[in-house]
């Protein structure tokens, strides 16, 4: 029973991170019909930025903010310079391009920061909390993870629902031509969308790294989990991404706890193939079929 509870708790924490990462993928997919596989190394790179700041003697929080800001800038710059030319072109080009970026960012990090494991601090205790006399698998950093993802999601919802910029961004994503006719600078909205997505990805990177090790490829499997979570939710729906992330986090946590952590990625693959075969439009899709 206790193991079950602890597995569920760590699944929940992990699920929040996958949800954030899936959200980043969905934000970009909705507006540009591109799955940004480079999201993983982008988040890795910004986490290294945080590490540099922290290693220079500054506080964790300054590093945290530096990572998020550099995520924002990196997303905007990549969209403007690299992605813009392939938007609306054959989809295989965009896929290859984001994979090329994947290799570039990996290589860049390996050259600049070294191809080795480095430990990354956490701002809160990693000791499990105690309830009564038992220790549960939820620690200070876990709570911080859940809260910070919830806060960022809340801010995004507020931005999209209640602000003019959010309305313009949604309009650009849904129907860019009509948005242009209504005076929306669609290009700027796409750049902003990539910037925000990259910021959310960076947050996921920081949360995965906290109290653990970072390495140029430490986010590689997360992009797979984020993608699976996003597909579970339908790839088009931010809410779906969050729910998909939680479902995946819980499932993978149980696989890891009861079968073996080595098979986590295989489980994700199986879940992905099941969804794509049985409900290609995602778990919440109505009758409308989607070409996958």
């Amino acid at each position: 029973m206790q193991q079950f509870l602890n597995t569920a708790l760590s699944g929940l924490t992990l699920g929040m991170v996958y949800a954030a990462f899936a959200l980043a993928l969905v934000l970009i997919w909705r507006s540009t019909r591109i799955v940004n596989f480079a999201q993983a190394p982008m988040a890795m790179l910004t986490t290294f930025v945080a590490l540099v700041v922290i290693d220079a003697g500054h506080s964790y929080w300054l590093g945290f903010v530096a990572a998020l800001v550099s995520g924002l800038v990196l997303g905007a710059v990549l969209e403007r310079v690299v992605i813009r030319p392939v938007e609306g072109k054959a989809e295989i080009n965009a896929v290859i391009l984001t994979l090329g970026l994947f290799i570039v960012l990996h290589g860049l990090a390996a050259v600049v920061f070294g191809n080795r494991y480095r430990s990354f601090p956490a701002p809160f205790g990693l000791e499990g909390l105690t309830v009564g006399s038992t220790t549960i698998a939820l620690n200070g950093f876990g709570i911080f993870t859940i809260v910070s993802v919830l806060v960022v999601m809340g801010l995004l919802v507020a931005l999209f629902r209640f602000t003019d910029v959010g309305l313009r961004m949604r309009a650009s994503a849904f129907n860019s031509e009509v948005a242009r006719l209504l005076g929306v600078k669609v290009g700027a909205m796409l750049t902003l969308g990539w910037a925000l997505a990259s910021l959310v990805g960076s947050l996921a990177g920081l949360l995965i790294a906290g109290g653990s090790l970072v390495h140029p490829s430490y986010m590689d499997s997360v992009v797979v989990f984020g993608f699976v979570a996003a597909v579970l939710g339908g790839l088009d729906s931010p809410l779906g991404a969050v729910v998909g992330g939680l479902i995946l986090g819980l499932s993978l946590s149980f696989v890891s706890g009861y079968v073996g952590s080595q098979l986590v990625a295989l489980a994700a693959l199986v879940i992905l193939m099941l969804v794509l075969t049985l409900k290609p439009g995602g778990l919440f899709a109505q009758a409308a079929e989607r070409r996958v």
Binding site: V95, L99, L276
Partner: peptide, 8 residues
């Protein structure tokens, strides 16, 4: 196709 195949 495309991104789905790449992701899988």
């Amino acid at each position: 196709h495309g991104p789905y195949l790449a992701g899988a």
